[in-house]
């Protein structure tokens, strides 16, 4: 590279034109504004879609959740199993047992009866699952009716066993603490 070339290279800034027409910037600014508007619109559109989808998701979730909660009742109502008011009777009987107490020495034995209650609840869930998977069938309606009768019988039995324990406890105290049966 000779001196002339170096001279030109070193002074290339001085080889620039004086000014740039203002319209160039105005065009740039105009395009930027349009683009910003487009972006804003796109952002608004996306925001709207996201909010809409979220609301839809929430709605489906809530409905599903309600559906699960009501599933048991729905099935019972659908097959006219609620007419016997078993649920109400069971709840009333359970309520009567909430504060029931037995001597601590009998608590362990008593757990077997409470396990039976848990077992019945598990069995009931199995009925519901069976109906969900295979549809309602006559036999399962019979079993559910029987189930409720058995559950009421069991609650009656728990009550009478508590009464029996406490009756004998009065006659022959075991001098241990009383504990709630935790039904």
């Amino acid at each position: 590279m000779n001196n002339f070339e170096k001279y030109l290279q070193d002074n290339k800034d001085k080889l620039q034109s004086d000014s740039v027409d203002e319209k160039v910037w105005l065009m740039i600014e105009n395009e930027m504004l349009k683009s910003k508007n487009r972006r804003s619109k796109r952002f608004l559109r996306i925001t709207f879609i996201v909010i809409f989808m979220s609301l839809l998701g929430c709605l489906i979730y809530v409905l599903q959740d309600q559906d699960e909660g009501l599933n048991e009742q729905k099935i019972l109502a659908e097959y006219d199993l609620t007419k016997y008011n078993f649920e109400e009777k069971v709840n009333t009987k359970k309520q009567q047992l909430v504060s029931a107490t037995v001597p601590e020495t009998k608590f362990e034995d008593f757990q077997i009866l409470l396990q039976q209650l848990e077992f019945m609840d598990g069995q009931f869930q199995d009925y519901i699952r069976y109906i969900e998977q295979n549809g309602y069938q006559e036999f399962i309606g019979d079993q559910i009716l029987n189930f409720y009768k058995s559950k009421i019988e069991l609650l009656d039995k728990i009550k009478s066993e508590i009464d029996k324990i406490n009756y004998y406890e009065k006659i022959k105290p075991s001098y241990t603490e009383y504990v709630t049966i935790e039904i």
């Binding site: 800034d13 080889l15 034109s17 004086d18 160039v24 910037w25």
Partner: peptide, 11 residues
């Protein structure tokens, strides 16, 4: 930014 570089870029 535009003002800083416009002349140079145009040239």
């Amino acid at each position: 930014i535009y003002e800083m570089y416009a002349k140079q870029m145009l040239a």
